[in-house]
Amino acid sequence: MNNKSLPYLLLLPATLFLAVFFVYPFAQIAVQAFTAEQGFTLQHFDKMATNWKFWPSFWNTIILAAIVVPLQLVMALAMASIVAKLKTGRNSILYVFTIPLGLSDLAAGIIWLAIFEQSGFLSSMLVGLGVVDRPVLFLGYQNLWVIFIAVILAELWRATAIVMVILVSGMGLIPKEYYEAAEVFGAGPWKRFLKVTLPMLRPSLQTALILRTIAAFEVFAVVVALGGTSLPVLVGQTYDWQFNLRDSGGAAATALVILAISIAATLVFLRLLRTPRGATP
């Protein structure tokens, strides 16, 4: 067989799979979002945007991502810096840190619900300690900010490890000599982090941020478990359009909005964290 065509041939099954199960449905949704019986239309977007829950769900999604992703980045950087310096037990600690990654996000939401609900662990503990007289309703629609905090906590707990894993492997790729050179030329630990680790970690930071931000825009199950309908988010809206309102045009339009902000965020990270020409080792 021709050696040149072999790699393409080997990639063919995966490409076909992606074409059939991702590209085709995506195209279908894109078409659906812009068409009605009479042909091209923007009526689905109009309908979507005028729905009273659209803008709250849009901003909730953006604000959640804007709080969760930076927090995760800072925590993951700190955790990765510590893990990368470990000489023994490094893998065991990585395994422990990554346990939440193995859970579905709905399960993660339910775990945190067990903590925050009226008869949950936190409430019972406060009653047991005598801080409050009777169980507290934390996750009521009157306390939207508590739901917000609970979702943020659950997301931090659930998905920080993926950022950390990417950063740990990126840190492992930075040659030790750069740190030694920085040390000899006067950089203390903090300066070495700023002047060597961060800039040389750029490719990993880019990957982690893009992955995590896109995932944050798709937040759904955790929010449903903890907030029900009190805290609308974009994917929840999509679900509503499709299954409660039986309007796939509205669902398709909302899905395209999620896609648009995901692409926008990706472009921003690609631009912000690009490596200048020639600045690769």
């Binding site: 040659p175 000599e177 750069y178 050179a181 002047k195 040389m200 750029r202 600045a279 080792p281």
Partner: peptide, 13 residues
Amino acid sequence: SMVFQNYAVFPHL
């Protein structure tokens, strides 16, 4: 100050 075997010239600077 030191000169390293693999130079350790920072690639990002």
